[in-house]
């Protein structure tokens, strides 16, 4: 993750109209935004659509980011709203990724990858949105507890506690799956 100062400079340069800064901001925050979207929509193709649309709309309204150094938290709140809107449009029917037929044309994956992704998402089905978000941001994107706490507006202690619970549930579900076949 970029430092707050680096993010602030990138936002300022993007506001000044430098195209490369938009790419750099997108590159640096794509995975984190995906983690947040995935924690809500629970399907990788939908999460990618949500992230792309949310990032475009965030960059279009970049002037409304009042604290450029805290851009990541601001972006994630926009992604979260977009993901909830996307769920609402689908009639709140949250779907766990169809392991047999993933419609993810943008990211072609091998059969093994698809199975693994489906297995992980099915296990994450036992987590709350917040637990999934913290778990994905920490264990997939590699954010630290202070970074997660700052972006999500929670305390570091709370972030640690949420992560602990999330891992425990995930391990239990993955263990059940290993013992009894597909979760």
């Amino acid at each position: 993750m970029l430092s707050a100062t680096e993010v602030e400079h990138l936002v300022e340069r993007a506001l000044a109209g430098e195209p490369e800064s938009f790419s750099a901001l997108a590159r640096a925050h794509y995975r984190a935004a995906y983690c947040t979207a995935l924690s809500i929509v629970r399907a990788s193709a939908d999460a990618e659509d949500v992230v792309q649309d949310a990032m475009v709309s965030a960059f279009t309204e970049l002037e409304s980011c009042r604290e450029p150094a805290r851009f990541p938290g601001w972006l994630l709140s926009i992604v979260r709203r977009a993901a909830l809107m996307s769920l609402r449009k689908r009639g709140r029917a949250r779907r766990v990724e169809d392991v047999a037929a993933p419609a993810d044309e943008a990211a072609p994956a091998s059969g093994g990858d698809v199975l693994l992704r489906g297995r992980l998402l099915a296990a994450a089905g036992s987590l709350s949105d917040r637990q999934a978000e913290v778990l994905f941001l920490h264990d997939l994107e590699g954010w630290t507890h202070p970074e997660i706490a700052d972006a999500l507006g929670i305390s570091e202690v709370n972030a640690r506690q949420i992560l602990f619970e999330a891992r425990k549930k995930m391990r239990a579900r993955l263990g059940e799956a290993d013992a009894g076949g597909v979760p």
Binding site: Y30, L38, F136, D139, R167
Partner: peptide, 12 residues
Amino acid sequence: DEEKLDLSGLDP
């Protein structure tokens, strides 16, 4: 439960 989970399968 303090060990990192391998979630690389979810990496987009």
